[in-house]
């Protein structure tokens, strides 16, 4: 498996939608390489069983119930008005 390079860190940061401080890129690349090297042990494990996901105990009925207060939720946002959350303009 390849080491994680500084370019990889930039690509991953772009995918994860976060900026990485340029002074941290090389350190992060080294740390992530160490971790991915450590987890190589997984490749040598012989697996004889098929993993089964956790089971859900029950599903709720598909019916309308009272939910959280709209105004309260909007108030919790950094920028909102009575109509919704406000974000930078995304179209024309």
């Amino acid at each position: 498996m390849p080491d994680i390079t500084s370019d990889d860190v930039h690509r991953l940061a772009e995918l994860a939608r976060l900026t990485v401080d340029s002074a941290r890129v090389e350190t992060l690349a080294a740390e992530l390489s160490d971790i991915t090297e450590y987890v190589q042990v997984l490749r040598s494990v012989t697996c004889t069983v098929t993993p089964s996901p956790h089971a859900m105990s029950s599903v709720r009925k598909d019916e309308v119930n009272p939910s959280l207060d709209r105004e309260e939720l909007l108030n919790a946002a950094p920028h909102s008005d009575a109509d919704g959350f406000i974000v930078p303009r995304v179209v024309g």
Binding site: R17, V20, A76, P78, P88, V90
Partner: peptide, 21 residues
Amino acid sequence: VRFGVRNEANTLPEMYKSTRG
């Protein structure tokens, strides 16, 4: 967008990246 703190930016992707970063 919905809770906590935001770093203001001119575009939506830049706002996401700056806030999270």
